[in-house]
Design a protein around this nucleic acid. Sequence first.
DNA 1: GAGTGGTCTAGACCACGCA
DNA 2: GCGTGGTCTAGACCACTCT
Lengths: 262, 262
Amino acid sequence: MDSPARPPYYARDNQGGSKARDGVSATPGFRPLYRQVYEYLVRQVSEGAWRPGEALPSEQALARELGVSQGTVRKALDALAVEGIMERRQGKGTFIAANTQERSLFKFFRLSRPGGERVTPQRGEEQVRRRAANQGDIARLGLSKGDKVVEIRRIRLVDGEPALFEMIVVPAAVFPDIENRAPLPNALYSLYQSDYGINITTAHEELKADLARKDDAAYLKLSLGAPVLQIDRLAVALDGRVVEWRVSRCDTRNFVYAVTLG
Amino acid sequence: MDSPARPPYYARDNQGGSKARDGVSATPGFRPLYRQVYEYLVRQVSEGAWRPGEALPSEQALARELGVSQGTVRKALDALAVEGIMERRQGKGTFIAANTQERSLFKFFRLSRPGGERVTPQRGEEQVRRRAANQGDIARLGLSKGDKVVEIRRIRLVDGEPALFEMIVVPAAVFPDIENRAPLPNALYSLYQSDYGINITTAHEELKADLARKDDAAYLKLSLGAPVLQIDRLAVALDGRVVEWRVSRCDTRNFVYAVTLG
DNA sequence: GAGTGGTCTAGACCACGCA
DNA sequence: GCGTGGTCTAGACCACTCT
């Protein structure tokens, strides 16, 4: 299960017979079989073995191929489905989750009307430039001095009114030539997946209140000193790399940031 | 599985033999067996069949008692563990999750230092009073005109400095006599569970930026017009009732609201 | 009807905690 | 050593989709 390629037979962690059962039981490095299958599949997806939206082999086929039982494959696939990496459809098959625009927005775009009704943003003005990474970029994105980044600044509208002012920084090495792809789509994570094979699976956000500065005032049509909500996000790809830093500044007179805990 | 009490044998949804297999297959109302076990256990917990921290019967015992296989019970228990309602410990058993102070704070208290380091609040001044529900309470908590609520206003400190100013409203009928229990613990949800049998499982929060008003300025030692983060929370109990409305106002110079999406 | 995932069962063995 | 949950397997049947 740890062999690199896509082997018809493979060596298991806990070696031997056909399960993790052979007396030895080297407790420390123990990793259950279904976990190994899970990691194998994550690796395959990271390496682009299947395209988004494409179907995987059936449970039976995978089980045969990997030499484990169908139940074990199922447990791995179920976990992947829970994490939103795959999508299972009874009667049809298991598919690599396509980060469609809507899907991606639903997951990571948390602005709503007060009361809970979700809204979807439209694209506004945007500026894209390539530049050297500064200290902040280096620390957050794990870069080295001298590395290049691409910085995107854009407005996002709701019902034609500016609602959000974003600054987005990504490593140029991870998204080659992205600075020449304007106009960028509303849901960037969709583009990251389809054009760069980068699956954003989680995002860490830190929120604070601030006062409108000159930029905010101009872009969001606010007066100086009006309250703005600042959302500072680090987006993590399937392979664990932090591949985007985003700071959004938001007028919360008409919208709120909505989240469910628990 | 749908019978109310705690039956040694019970009637199944999809009736008949011993699984959901008897030709009829009335597709519409289909609910898998493990789901029925799940709902049965939720009902038991809601009704206080076991105390927080107490162990449930073993998988085998439950399976025997309910007349299903161990695997089916396991699937229900695993789901309950994922939702944090139960806690499973290999070699020991399955326990009703005890909403300890730390646990409850960890789950619902989202303030951190910028960068991610978690903090824990201390109790500050508090005022508790019983009053008639107003329109806002009625709408949010699903009450009727004339119902009573208990309102708690309190400060919470971090490192001795005021960080949070909270207004908490709960239905008096759900938490009888809570107004006479001062001083209230830091983690209220722990008290709700141990003294009232109310398990808070999820919370919906809406965040916005605002400017410090007179109250904020006084309690949080801010100047008027300083930015504050407002967190508007509805807390939902295991049985689906909204049992608390809480508005927190927060000074985010030293703290941020941290959340992970995905 | 064939093929897929979804549910359910039964039984074996492993890892863990405790007496 | 016993009892608990955790993993793994094998096989049956159900529900869904497409042809």
